[in-house]
């Protein structure tokens, strides 16, 4: 019996469960402290006598609490995911799909751009010296400053909708791909490279038969970062564009109206979306690398 208990406590699930429980406990205590004060103020204003039981009940159920508790967020999630038509403005599925669209478009464009820049940098010494500083400088500019400029510029060219948002996703996601691919394309094994030289392989053959494959593990590591950056980009892009839909718009309207529960629900959905996207890239990675015999 002791043995069984011991082996149970050493499982990964047990560790995760303990951690989650710990966080929940801390969350509820913090919510009580933060929301309790507001509750007491409300009760005082009524002029009637109040009890701590009322405070306790109210702290976990008021409409716009400073810190919503998990079960409130879960309820809101359930309501806005399952109890709304997916075409409704109140549906988180609706907003997620809008954000997902620009995330995926931006990710695809950004990855392509990143790969092309990396190929240029690796094959051309001038590009290496001239392009890399700009690539790095591009990431030191705060994205919140860039986003409205992109939207205005593209808007003046009559480009609206998903494209401006995708551009901002692209802007964030090309960078990790450049860095990873440059490293990856230069990572070809010395012996493999010399072998190709003994075969009198052309530069193109060297790329498509050796460097491209050597770079793949690096590429997938970069793509995982890029897709989460693309999601952040899409959400950030929805903030200043006055977008009516998208998780960013949902976050913004939540903060306008003090709908903290709505903000938290949108946050949870963003996190789930990010997790799902990274998992998808991870699955693609395993599929490709396993088939190529590259384990890990």
């Amino acid at each position: 019996m002791k043995q069984q208990l011991k082996s149970l406590t050493q499982t990964q699930g047990f560790a995760v469960l303990t951690l989650v429980l710990g966080i929940l406990v801390i969350w509820y205590i913090a919510a009580l402290l933060m929301n309790g004060n507001q509750m007491i103020n409300m009760l005082e204003r009524t002029g009637q006598s109040w009890t701590y039981i009322q405070v306790l009940q109210g702290a976990y159920s008021i409409q716009r609490p400073p810190l919503p508790v998990p079960h409130q967020v879960a309820m809101e999630l359930y309501q806005s995911v399952f109890n709304q038509a997916v075409t409704s403005r109140r549906s988180l599925v609706y907003h997620s799909m809008i954000t997902l669209e620009s995330t995926l478009l931006g990710f695809a464009l950004g990855s392509l751009l990143g790969i092309l820049i990396a190929v240029g940098i690796v094959h051309n010494r001038t590009l290496d010296a001239s392009l890399m500083p700009w690539v790095i400088a591009s990431q030191t500019v705060p994205i919140l400053a860039i986003a409205p400029i992109v939207v205005v510029v593209l808007g003046s060219m009559n480009l609206t909708g998903v494209l401006p948002k995708a551009m901002i996703s692209m802007y964030l996601s090309f960078f990790p791909v450049v860095i990873g691919m440059v490293k990856g394309l230069r990572s070809a094994d010395k012996l493999h490279t010399e072998l190709m030289i003994t075969y009198n392989a052309s530069a193109q053959q060297m790329f498509w038969k050796l460097r491209w494959f050597s770079a793949q593990p690096y590429l997938f590591a970069s793509l995982k970062i890029a897709i989460s950056a693309a999601l952040v980009g899409a959400i950030v892009a929805e903030l200043p564009t006055g977008a009516q839909g998208g998780l960013g718009a949902r976050l913004l309207s939540g903060s306008y109206y003090g709908q903290t529960v709505q903000i938290w629900a949108a946050l949870v959905i963003s996190a789930l979306l990010g997790w799902a996207l990274i998992t998808l890239v991870g699955m693609a990675e395993r599929l490709v690398l396993n088939r190529r015999g590259l384990r890990g």
Partner: peptide
Amino acid sequence: NRLYGYVFQAPALFPWRTIASNCALPMEIS
């Protein structure tokens, strides 16, 4: 002119290719 074949101290096989595909490599290139 690909007059010689070179065998290194290490096998230097491409890990993403099967044995047959590795052998095909120099012939694909030529």
